[in-house]
Structures are given as C-alpha cells and as structure tokens.
C-alpha cells in the first residue's frame, strides 16, 4: 500500500500540522512516511501545501505531481490541484469559500463542512482535525487509535489536555463526510 496525498489550503489553517499528525499515525502502525511542505517566503494567509506519503515500502520521491488523494481547503488550491488527482483517486474538500466546485467525473469527490463544524463546536482551530477525520473515514489507511497516538507524539506535552477535543473533532469529521458524485 502506498498513499500519496496533497493537503492544500491557506497558511494558518493547520495544513502542515494535519499532515504531520497523519505522518505520525503512519509511524505508529510501522509504515514508512514522508512529509514535504512547499516552503518558501510564505506567511499567514498565503497558500500552504504539504505532500504526505504513507507506504508499506521505502518511499521514493517525496515530491510529486500526481496524487491518490487531494485534500483541498481553498479556491486557489482547487484551481491548482483538482487536475493532479490520479484517475480513480479521491478529492476531499471543504466547500467554505469555494466558488468553482470540482467537476471531474473520473475521481470520487467528497465534501466536509470543516469550517462550519469546527465553529459549531466552538473552536475554529480544530478545523484541520475535522477534515482529517473525514479523510480517514473515506480512506482508512490509518486507524483512529493510531491517529490519537500520532497526535500525542506530535503535540507538545503542555497541549495534551486538548487531545479529547481533537478526538471529538476527528469523530465529527468521520460522521459528517458526504460523497457528492
């Protein structure tokens, strides 16, 4: 199994940390992982994306041009990455702020109201965990237990009190993802 994922959105949405938690989850179940951010002179509000690969085998290129799954969190990223999903692959997106919805017929398209759900839970910062929950529901490459272990590994100890809230957000995402094609 090799899963090649691009997660793309605005800086500050938690794109990079979502990728990091996913990568840590892979390690927790003995898989090979890579996490490659698009880094540059970027800042909050600019675009941010990260390529995450989880595999049973040694990982070749950590940077890619085509992906099994694209997780898209803003319009710029939709414009850039919809075309990069492999035929038969998955596109998961949050419709918040999306004006041109995805149109491809050869991939499975799912939506998650991440921003709305996070707001309804009273904490917009857990948005990325709602989206992560939606992803692992659609593509269960990592087990929920391992995601929680991954969270513990990637959060500094002083934030461990937030793990129940994050777990709740992941569950919220798992329960509210819809296939739209």
């Amino acid at each position: 199994m090799t899963e090649e994922i691009i997660i793309a959105g605005f800086g500050g949405q938690g794109v990079l940390s979502m990728g990091k938690i996913l990568a840590y989850s892979g390690i927790m179940q003995d898989q090979e992982v890579s996490w490659m951010p698009s880094y540059g002179p970027e800042m909050r509000g600019g675009t941010a994306n990260v390529t995450v690969i989880v595999s049973d085998e040694r990982i070749s290129s950590p940077t890619l041009t085509r992906y099994d799954t694209a997780i898209i969190l803003n319009q710029q990223s939709m414009d850039k990455f919809e075309e990069t999903v492999k035929p038969g692959g998955i596109l998961l997106y949050d419709p918040n702020g999306i004006t041109h919805h995805p149109t491809r017929k050869d991939i499975s398209i799912y939506k998650i109201e991440g921003a709305k759900l996070a707001a309804s839970m009273g904490n917009t910062k857990i948005f990325n965990m709602v989206v992560l929950g939606a992803y692992i529901k659609v593509k269960p490459i990592v087990k929920l237990d391992n995601v929680i272990k991954g969270l513990k590994k990637s959060l500094p100890f002083r934030y461990h009190k937030l793990i129940p809230l994050n777990t709740e957000a992941i569950t919220m995402g798992m329960e509210n993802v819809d296939q739209i094609n």
Binding site: K20, A23, G26, I27, E32, V33, S34, W35, M36, P37, Y39, I59, P62, T63
Partner: peptide, 10 residues
C-alpha cells in the same frame, strides 16, 4: 539540500 533538510520522515 532544502528538500532533505526541510522534509520530515521517520
């Protein structure tokens, strides 16, 4: 290089 330096792996 920046790729090996900035990426995360196990």
């Amino acid at each position: 290089d920046g790729l090996i330096g900035q990426m995360m792996e196990k």
